[in-house]
Design a protein around this nucleic acid. Structure first.
Lengths: 213, 213
DNA sequence: TTCAAAAAGGGGGATTTTCCCCACTTTACC
DNA sequence: GGTAAAGTGGGGAAAATCCCCCTTTTTGAA
């Protein structure tokens, strides 16, 4: 029985180093090296003959993030099993990462014992899905594939202004429209975005990054 | 020369375990135990005779967070040197934590070598401030001391509900208050937070992490 | 201990904003 | 040339905002 090789892709140096120590205490795994982001990983893989068995990869990284990196790996190194590792339990992120081909998704608050189990699973079964991730994925299947909301430019403009303390009357002024027209935008957005009030608009805009706080 | 004792207070089990391994590789430090949040730490300290030299403490924790925990430690265990450890480089958080008595503030992307240095500094010099933290603190001195907004529990409760699509009438129901009382909260918050509308409340709450999207 | 101030809960009522339904024009496009 | 949108608005109801008022409880300092 030989050791399986692991690389760590994470910009949190302290965490990465600590994680390396932890992985090295597992008797059948060995960390080859750490890199700080996806770009560095790809560079490494180009130069090295030996590819790792497993990549432990953070999702939020500078330069080249987890999801982008996954897509690159699929092309050039499909044999590397990627385990995503993140603070982020956002459903969308999880789904994207798994769809991109990650063999599992670990939240950083996972128990070390479970973590070892996850590594073993990925090697022997090819994947590891925690209970939480499984239920997230399953529940996402039930939701009718949200018909993608397409917003017109003018609607987006209005939506952004709705995220300020301006009154609709002022917004109308800013957009050179009658308050009643603005009222029309408001209403059609309520329908499109499935919200019931201006607060709903604000929350939607922030959640979808249309408005930065 | 004896080993200095360290406890780790972090709800990210994987990180905590990994960190423990890392600290144990430093020849003059030894991890006593880990706990998941401030409450557990306090419980531990009550029962144990031996107090640790250093507490490595995350800030965002469930149950009892870093800042609250600091305040408790000041009362009962002023000798424990606390090193805050966080992803969060938000200026307000840093200042609050240092003002609460933390001996240093580390971002989780710190280099392991530097980390060892920080531990040593805290033991021998009594504090460790990274360059980034120093400059943050210094630059904050220039800003006119924003008179700190103190929100009462009930106000915070209302503020969170104001970030939903509920009407004030519904919020009143949820809080078992008359709509008129809710109106009072709204008005006093407008004044306190210097906003002019419910949108302003929502933006304030989100910006100050009182409401998570 | 006492007295005043602040906090917490609530009210009346006027004004504005927001919300919902409906209707009219103008493009745009098949 | 018809039809479907986008763009524009009106009327009226409901909600939110605002300003003034009140009582009871808690707190803080003299």
């Amino acid at each position: 029985m030989h050791d399986y090789s692991v690389v760590i892709v994470d910009d949190h140096l302290l965490f990465a180093q600590a994680l390396e120590n932890l992985v090295n205490t597992f008797d059948n795994f060995k960390v080859l090296y750490q890199v700080n982001n996806g770009r560095e990983l790809l560079t490494h893989l180009e130069k090295d003959e030996i590819a790792p068995d497993i990549a432990l990869m953070d999702i939020n990284m500078p330069v080249l993030n987890g999801i982008e990196t996954m897509h690159m790996l699929n092309k050039d190194h499909p044999d590397i099993k990627v385990l995503a590792l993140s603070m982020d339990d956002d459903e969308g992120t999880i789904i994207k990462m798994l769809r991109a081909g990650a063999k599992g998704y670990l939240l950083k608050d996972i128990h070390p014992q479970t973590f070892h189990g996850a590594l073993n699973d990925v090697i022997h079964k090819g994947f590891y899905y925690s209970e939480k991730i499984t239920s997230t994925v399953l529940s996402s299947l039930h939701k009718a594939e949200a018909p993608e909301v397409i917003l017109k430019d003018r609607e987006i403009e209005f939506l952004k202004l709705a995220c300020t303390e301006k009154t609709y009357k002022e917004i109308a002024g800013d957009m050179f429209l009658s308050p009643k027209t603005i009222d029309g935008y408001r209403e059609s957005l309520f329908e499109k975005l499935q919200v019931k009030s201006r607060v709903g608009l604000v929350l939607y805009a922030i959640k979808h990054d249309l408005y930065k706080i």
